[in-house]
Write a protein that binds this DNA or RNA. Structure first.
Length: 810
DNA sequence: AGCCTCAGCAGAAAA
DNA sequence: TGCTGAGGCT
């Protein structure tokens, strides 16, 4: 690592010749001067400091196009890394669009992890793996660690496997192998951390498996231990581009520095003000010390914002200016003035959700003196996911279509993981974790005792679990119904393996992947299915014959049909791959949960999930000290934590294009307990001239609600006794509250009563609801139905959200 | 083996 | 409050 200290000025001479063949570059005319500079300064280290909404992706993609257009590099000599598949996909698409062709020829544009998989498959043997290693996800990782903790006789109550998993993850993010682990770290986890980490790595090698952290770590280790291999890649990648540089961790940083050492043409794009993943190992320091790390670095600031109106931008700037360690940018815009950031306080979280629901409907019809907005133009961004529930409940009640972004990912669903485990058992004989997962799914009468026996048999003979099970059966070490079922399963696995047998052959790498010109490289790969059974068909056979499909067909829970749908989708996706192996890798690494559902719905998501997105209308609820900024974050990381929370606030505000509404509640129920809290300190930091304080009719407005009167005195008392809160927003709110405006009914007037939907039901009907499952109608009120759900209890739901059901109540 | 009850705990989350 | 996991009961 220290060998990096000299990173001298670049040499671009040999490349200048290539630039001779430059073609016209119309895309340059579409850039502003800063973007243009970032695109045209191709040689040497460049740091592109791109503020929110300043056309970062445009600059980045134009730069790639420019590299190709000026013949500085061939498509396969450009390394372009992103964090998410979504970002990689977008870059690919945009470059393709600009070039007017597909970018099949950019094999090194992808996520850190997908690129590392590619590298690691080539050199797996250097870290004791085979090139067809399995990639474990967090769940497998935790199950494995649990076994190790149990074997080490450690109380897993006091020392939970999850905790060890995150420790190991953190170490890998810092590029610490077990050997390099500092004593202080090794002493973590009841003094057994280092030991367990080493055992875990050994076990992974035995299973021919890696976890996500290994993908980077192994490659870094290979680069560090095999200079000749590193050199090959250093030479090959003439130009390196990195997106979201502020999110890189130590391992990624080392990886990049190693690769950039030869040509020194590295362009990192990022925004220190949007660094919100410190808890995930990201080092803001990486971007802050870029100029030191890469001497001669050129810094370009993109400061013209094309997204938000001036008030929104100014409010965001005023908040972020509270942070100390910043590189500093001044965002500006040419847009016209627009709305101020709107601020409103509520009595409690429920009132907040109700108010936002009504406000959304008002904005749809344009009754706020603004143009009407569609639901797809609006988003609610929360700090913690448990805040979402209040909105879901409310929106379900008033029949407002919404979509939650971020939930469980497709491949994290139980049925997908089960199906994949079956495929893994068939394709990788050593995959014990997969076998453990499916051995009793569906139920085969193979419980704990049976699995223990199989494990013992496997261990004693030094074979995999499948082989252990076979031996156990042959030696009659297991009997009864379980034995019969186990035999059927083992026979099934043998048969499926036979059906899907892939010819393992040496085939040359694709031309565009060749790294070292001159030598022909090849790798052991699985040939595309030729005379074998098509793998889609094989997949269906596995799922059917194992009884997995029928398990869900016989399942009566409301989720079952959806799960079968997902399985169908999974098999459908298979058609896009040459074989099961390729598919498994795709699912663990690439498959995400993007719903292409374009229906008009308001989006609900966390602030973290919102990074990179933008919406005309944004709601930012829950700005209360303790929730946002999060108490836990401040307790654990002190000022650093607070600054990251502040950046999160900045990210939130800058998602808004035209209307940004911040709100807080005086009281909130957290884990069933009522808590009252102060408005967020970030509210004080908003520049007064960019904020308009709203009062909620019907809440401040007096009238019938008992809570109305309480609000003023309750929160005021707390605020005055605390005597710390004197924000401009708060003072104005007090003034307004004194005025006692008009009272208005609390229920929305804009909900169109869909009597047609109601009239098709009567009391006693059985119905089905997407979220709550089956239930019976108890009462009909207007356009709403009171339904007693079998699982979820009594709920009031808008009629159009349920469908008639013919199922029999159990 | 599988259902049920009770205790414990609760964070943001890419690959 | 509501989910998860472990252990007890049938």
């Amino acid at each position: 690592m220290s060998s990096f200290d000299e990173f001298d000025a670049f040499e671009g001479a040999s490349l200048a010749a290539r630039a001779m063949a430059a073609r016209p570059s119309p895309y340059l005319d579409e850039l502003n001067p800063a973007q243009r500079e970032a695109v045209e300064r191709l040689d040497g280290p460049v740091l592109m400091l791109a503020g929110a909404g300043t056309g970062k992706t445009k600059a980045l993609t134009s730069r790639i196009v420019h590299l190709l257009n000026t013949s500085r590099a061939r498509p396969n000599e450009i390394l372009a890394v992103t964090f998410t598949n979504k970002a990689a996909r977008e870059m690919k698409n945009r470059v393709g669009r600009m070039l007017g062709q597909t970018v099949e020829g950019m094999p090194w544009l992808g996520t850190f992890h997908s690129i590392c998989v590619k590298l690691l498959r080539r050199h797996a043997e250097l870290v004791g793996l085979k090139s067809n290693f399995t990639i474990l996800d967090t769940d497998d990782q935790v199950r494995l660690l649990k076994q190790l903790i149990q074997a080490a006789n450690i109380d897993e109550k006091r020392w939970p496997p999850r905790q060890l998993a995150s420790l190991i993850d953190a170490w890998k993010n810092k590029a610490l192998t077990p050997e390099r682990l500092p004593a202080a770290d090794a002493g973590a986890f009841n003094n057994r951390g280092g030991e367990l980490y080493a055992q875990y790595q050994t076990r992974l090698r035995e299973l021919n498996a890696v976890d996500f952290g290994d993908l980077l770590l192994h490659v870094v280790v290979i680069f560090q231990n095999y200079p000749d291999i590193l050199q090959q890649y250093q030479r090959w990648f003439r130009y390196i581009l990195v997106d979201e540089y502020q999110d890189t961790n130590v391992a990624q940083y080392l990886w990049l520095r190693l690769l950039a050492k030869e040509h020194k043409n590295i362009c990192c794009v990022g925004d220190d003000d949007q660094s919100i993943y410190g808890w995930r190992g990201a080092e803001v320091g990486n971007i802050l010390k870029f100029e030191k790390d890469f001497p001669g670095a050129h810094v370009v600031r993109l400061e013209q914002n094309y997204r938000s109106t001036p008030h929104i931008l100014a409010a965001a700037s005023s908040v972020i200016s509270g942070n100390e360690n910043r590189l500093g940018k001044t965002l500006w815009t040419q847009q016209e003035e627009g709305e101020k950031v709107r601020l409103i306080g509520h009595w409690d979280g429920e009132v907040e959700a109700r108010w936002i629901g009504e406000e959304v409907e008002a904005l749809q019809t344009g009754t706020r003196g603004m143009k009407p907005y569609g639901l797809e133009d609006m988003a609610i961004l929360v700090r913690a996911s448990h805040q979402m529930r209040a909105f879901e409940d409310r929106f379900l009640t008033i029949g407002l279509p919404y979509r939650v972004i971020g939930g469980p990912r497709f491949y994290e669903r139980m049925e997908i993981r089960d199906a994949m485990a079956y495929f893994r058992v068939v394709t990788s004989p050593e995959d014990d974790l997969a076998f453990e997962r499916i051995v009793n799914t569906p139920k085969r009468g193979l419980g704990n005792v049976a699995v223990q026996k199989i494990q013992t048999a496997a261990r004693e003979n030094g074979v995999s679990l499948v082989e252990g099970a076979r031996l156990l059966l042959d030696s009659k070490g297991i009997g009864g119904k379980g034995a019969k079922e186990l035999r059927i399963l083992i026979d099934g696995i043998d048969r499926w393996r036979g059906l899907g047998i892939q010819r393992e052959v040496e085939i040359p790498l694709n031309d565009d992947e060749v790294i070292d010109e001159g030598t022909t490289q090849s790798a052991t790969r699985f040939a595309p299915a030729g005379d074998n059974m098509p793998h889609t068909e094989l997949a269906e056979i596995i799922l059917d014959e194992s009884g997995y499909t029928s398990m869900w067909q016989n399942d009566k829970t409301p989720e079952a049909p959806g799960r079968l749908e997902n399985l169908k989708e999974l098999v459908g996706q298979l058609a896009n791959f040459d074989n099961l192996q390729g598919f498994l890798e795709h699912v663990s690494l690439v498959m995400d949960n993007e719903s292409d559902d374009a229906d008009a719905k308001i989006s609900i998501m966390t602030l973290h999930a919102a990074k990179g997105l933008e919406f005309p209308v944004v709601f930012l609820p829950g700005w209360e000290d303790g929730l946002f900024p999060s108490q836990r974050s401040m307790d654990e990381s002190g000022l650093k934590g607070l600054e990251e929370e502040r950046r999160l606030a900045y990210v939130g505000i800058t998602r808004a294009e035209e209307v940004c509404t911040i709100s807080f509640a005086g009281n909130r129920r957290v884990f069933g307990q009522w808590q009252s809290q102060m408005p967020s300190r970030f509210i004080d930091e908003l520049s007064e001239e960019d904020v308009e304080v709203l009062t909620a009719p019907g809440i401040y407005g007096g009238g019938h609600s008992g809570a109305a009167g309480d609000f003023g005195s309750g929160i005021q008392d707390r605020v005055q006794s605390a005597n710390t809160y004197n924000s401009p927003g708060w003072k104005r709110m007090q003034d307004r509250a004194g005025q006692r405006g008009l009272s208005q009914p609390k229920e929305s007037k804009n909900t169109i009563i869909d009597l047609e939907a109601v009239s098709s039901y009567s009391v006693g009907d059985r119905v089905f609801h997407q979220k709550f499952g089956y239930g019976e109608i108890m009462e009909i009120e207007g356009d709403k139905l009171v339904i007693e759900f079998d699982k979820a209890g009594e709920k009031k739901v808008v009629a159009k959200f349920v469908t008639a059901s013919t199922d029999i109540p159990f």
